[in-house]
Simulated scan of single mutants.
Amino acid sequence: MSDLQARPEVFQNQPCLRLHHANGDAVLVALHGAHVLSWTSGGVERLYLSPEAVFDGATAIRGGVPVCFPQFNMRGPLPKHGFARTSAWTASGSGEDWLELQLHSSPATLALWPHAFSATLRIDLAPGALELGFTVQNTGAQPLDFALALHTYLRVQDLPGLDLRGLAGQPYWDDVAQTDRLETDVVIFEGEVDRVYQAAAEPLTLVDGPVQLRIDQSPELAETVVWNPGPTKCAAIADMPFDGFKHMVCVEAAHVNTPVTLAAGAEWTGWQRLIVVTPD
């Protein structure tokens, strides 16, 4: 990794890379799972990483931005959320404000999912902004189907006062109530929230008291997943503190309701962009 401009670092005994922007913003990424662990902007941590997260190089890390690929949740025969978040990725390049990591099919992945592929996670850092781009190449001779979610855990200060704007009018699957619904207003976080929305055409805004975060995603990602476990479910999650639900909300750029079908030799890219909104 001598040609990388990102700085190697060890965090919780795991090899990582830290990317610094000239303005002081920074991002920390673990090679295990290509997992973004931290994004600081304006001296403030913007992502939630569970203090109970497991860092053993095999277990999925709770918090940050897990990459759910090629399966979402338990919607298929693979381990929950697929294997990308528990695989060893390789840093393939970086510059002053970007970093790329790659994962290729291997005997281990082929034993679970019989498709040849190459996946790239690109991280772009700008003042007050973080963009995550995910590219899949089908390197095999047959079409392949996959799902993807960039499972972004956002750190919040005031869950009771939190709302997510921009999804009014969008249909969604409510996994708690096990029914289809239509969003009529802002998303309020009371109790467990677990929803798969049809993505809105315009960016969303997460309002956390005086703090606002603009959340955008590419048209290739057809859904937005919104999740907070609430107090009861959070207490049953081994790698979350009992009050962890008060400090996080997941707003995920996803394509999970129907699979992406990728022809042999074809390539697909989707992205999520987070921008800190500075008060006037």
Rank of each mutant, 00 (worst) to 15 (best):
L154K: 15
G161E: 05
E223K: 12
T205K: 12
D216T: 14
M248Y: 01
H151S: 14
M248A: 09
P210Q: 03
P241R: 02
D174C: 08
D145K: 10
N138A: 07
P210I: 00
V226N: 00
C250I: 08
H151G: 07
T224Q: 11
P229F: 01
D216W: 10
D239L: 13
E220I: 07
Q157C: 14
Y153S: 07
P229R: 03
Q157G: 06
L159E: 13
L148Y: 12
Q157A: 09
P203C: 13
E202P: 05
A235W: 01
A141G: 13
Y172S: 07
V249A: 05
T184Q: 06
L213Q: 08
P160I: 10
F245S: 04
T179V: 09
R181D: 09
T152M: 14
T179H: 14
L159I: 10
Q212P: 05
D208L: 01
G161I: 12
T179G: 13
G244M: 10
R165S: 11
Q217V: 06
V249I: 07
L159R: 15
A254T: 01
E223P: 06
N138H: 07
Q198I: 11
G230W: 02
L150R: 10
T184L: 07
W227T: 11
D163E: 13
E223A: 03
D175S: 11
P219S: 04
M248Q: 06
A238P: 03
D163S: 08
A199G: 11
E190L: 13
T152D: 08
G169E: 04
A253E: 03
D208F: 01
T179C: 15
G169D: 05
E202W: 08
S218A: 11
L167P: 00
P241I: 01
L221C: 08
E220G: 14
D163H: 15
D174L: 04
D194K: 15
P231D: 00
Q137E: 10
P160H: 14
N228W: 00
Q142K: 13
D239C: 09
C234W: 05
A253F: 01
E192Q: 11
F146H: 15
D185T: 09
D180Y: 15
